[in-house]
């Protein structure tokens, strides 16, 4: 290579090639980044347009605090239960000696169920666990068990938890089954022949290997339920005090009586799902040093 070639600025060809993703970048800017930035900026703007922290400070009311807290609790619990139950079912199918025939239907069903969210899911649960639902009536007439009297109400926090699990569990199954398949038989056997018990194998080998996948799914499930509006709205209407419902009502009718407070509310949602994912990324990079 001659010196002249070497000295030629390497940047010159770049712009042409970057043009190829211009449509994508434009789309992402217009319909993903800028709308989000609008919210973020709006959260720090006074009605007159100046910079302020007042909106964020105004979030600190009992009602909004409790909405965030309920939302976080809801998301953590459904993500946790979803991961646990999904993991149990997936490992039952992969390691539990269940017939091979159940595997493919389970995966197909999980694909369907994880997408069967929103309004119709709420209807399905109302028809099952609602006041006149199938299971509710059946328990009452056959066993004399009155769910309502026992404190269970579908249109409440725990009702929402049960309903969300219908899409959370399958999502976990879909993601974790391939990860479980990735556990090599040799690892288990090597551990065993070296004297490890089944529990030691799981604790020292299998779970550390699965940890990044489980963690990633947990973060996904968390965000999934944190931002969900439709199921909760169709189930409980606008009453239930969780952040997405509150924001929904605010966007529709400015129930907070302050448009900029809406921005702050939405900004809080971004911060929380963002934090969840940053935590995930940090934990993941720490647990994944052994990956290529």
């Amino acid at each position: 290579m001659s010196e002249a070639q070497l000295r030629r600025p390497p940047k010159r060809r770049l712009p042409v090639e970057w043009l190829g993703i211009l449509p994508f970048v434009a789309f992402a800017m217009l319909f993903l980044i800028m709308p989000t930035m609008k919210i973020v900026i709006g959260a720090f703007q006074s009605p007159e347009g100046g910079f302020t922290l007042q909106n964020l400070i105004d979030l600190n009311t009992d009602s909004i605090r409790s909405a965030y807290w309920t939302s976080i609790k809801l998301s953590l619990i459904t993500a946790l239960l979803g991961c646990a139950a999904g993991f149990a079912m997936a490992s039952a199918v992969v390691f539990g000696g269940l017939p091979k025939r159940v595997r493919s239907p389970l995966l197909t069903f999980s694909g369907v169920a994880s997408n069967f969210a929103g309004v119709p899911l709420a209807f399905a649960f109302i028809a099952t666990l609602g006041p006149a639902g199938l299971v509710t009536l059946w328990l009452k007439t056959e066993f004399g068990i009155n769910l309502r009297a026992m404190g269970f109400n579908l249109l409440s926090f725990w009702g929402l938890v049960v309903t969300y699990l219908f899409f959370q569990i399958p999502l976990m199954i879909l993601i974790i089954i391939p990860a479980l398949d990735g556990l090599k038989r040799e690892w288990r056997e090597a551990a065993e022949v070296l004297g490890a018990t089944g529990a030691q194998y799981w604790r020292m080998v299998a779970l550390p290997i699965l940890f990044p996948s489980i963690l990633g799914t947990f973060a996904l499930l968390f965000a999934n339920s944190f931002g969900a509006v439709a199921t909760a709205f169709a189930l409980t209407g606008p009453q239930l005090n969780i952040v997405p419902i509150k924001l929904f009502a605010q966007i529709r009718g400015d129930v907070l009586g302050n448009p900029n407070l809406g921005y702050a509310l939405a900004f809080g949602m971004i911060v929380i799902t963002g934090l969840a994912n940053v935590t995930y990324i940090v934990l993941r990079t720490r647990s994944e040093r052994w990956l290529k």
């Binding site: 090599k184 056997e189 090597a190 004297g195 290997i209």
Partner: peptide, 15 residues
């Protein structure tokens, strides 16, 4: 109390 070596890739990748 046996030692065994497998065909390949039996090392624990996370260690």
């Amino acid at each position: 109390a046996i030692g065994m070596m497998f065909q390949a890739y039996a090392l624990f990748p996370n260690m």
